[in-house]
Design a protein around this nucleic acid. Structure first.
Lengths: 183, 183
DNA sequence: CCTAGCATGTAACCAGTTACATGATTCA
DNA sequence: TGAATCATGTAACTGGTTACATGCTAGG
């Protein structure tokens, strides 16, 4: 299970609240791992029971107390152990959009083409996001935190997103061509 | 939920047992959608309750009766309805291996390079599979079933796998270079 | 006035994994 | 002799989503 390890990864940069962690996930690991607050809060609680993290409460007016979580040595060891695992084989993940293409033969030609063109538009938008928002967000965080070494890998995963979207768009264009020619 | 729709997609090609469906998933949609038998059997049961499928039992000696499932008109409508959905935005999926790269800064340089090289090997193997096994499997099924129109899309998703692995390998090689230069 | 953001959480439910149960046949 | 394939399932558990609950502040 990787949610706990994602939280450890972020807490390794410094103490944060559950709410902060959610925002960081939304802004950076969104396309690698994501979770709702309703899952994050109980996860942090269990991590504290396992002594991976410690919490301190900061009272506030008109809002619930802020609860800052800090990674422990045990937590840091758990993070390193997880990072240092070698997968024996590639884990298949679920791609509902491609599953629709796999079974697309049940739809008529024009409808399939409309769907493929719709996908192209979505992926062009996503490519733009990786090239603009994602890039400037990383730059901003590096200025705020000074985590230069870490940012090398943030930037690499951002580039993966960019290359993935380029590949996806090129493949969709090929798929449109093939559908026009062969159906 | 897409498991039920995957099963409908395959049942739309002809009546099959739960066991057959599992094998087809393992051989074709494995990297788009997959499930265990312990999930497939109850799913088929619920689909029968919803009148998406109908079953007939074929007695056998020394084994449990084979249970052939057949798609109904209602099931076919549910399949088309699902295929014809336009997603409003791209759904993020979980990529544990890339998450490890994102947090790789916590490991030392040589160890990171070892992990990246290990990934290259895994993805080269996967690329080979898409180019050989996957391709000949599709050809075989087309001969057996004559589903030529459908095979256009099976082949397109196979090509996606191929392009994805090429992109992944090229990115990993770039990541190795960057790690060597910047760390 | 209403929506978004801040800040915490619980409860019910659905999806998916792991382990268990049965039992015959074939192949290395 | 032991593993793999065929063929069905159930039970317990874990992971993740949806809905609910509270309540203040700032901005359009």
């Amino acid at each position: 299970m990787s949610l706990k390890h994602t939280l450890l990864g972020f807490l390794n940069y410094g103490p944060q609240t559950g709410y902060d962690l959610k925002k960081h996930m939304d802004n950076s690991t969104q396309f690698l791992w994501h979770a709702r607050l309703s899952q994050i809060y109980p996860a942090l609680k269990r991590m504290e029971e396992d002594a991976w993290v410690e919490s301190t409460a900061a009272p506030q007016e008109g809002k619930p107390d802020k609860k800052f979580y800090m990674i422990t040595d045990k937590g840091r060891r758990a993070l390193i152990e997880w990072l240092d695992q070698f997968p024996g084989e590639i884990a298949p993940d679920k791609k509902p959009e491609l599953l629709r293409v796999f079974f697309a033969g049940a739809l008529d030609k024009e409808n399939i083409l409309t769907h493929l063109r719709h996908q192209v538009a979505l992926h062009r938008t996503q490519l733009q996001k990786y090239q603009t928002e994602a890039q400037s967000y990383i730059a901003e965080i590096v200025i705020q935190t000074g985590l230069e070494r870490e940012s090398v890998f943030w930037e690499l995963t951002r580039q993966f997103g960019e290359e993935y979207e380029r590949m996806y768009i090129a493949w969709l264009e090929q798929a449109i061509q093939t559908t026009q020619d062969k159906l």
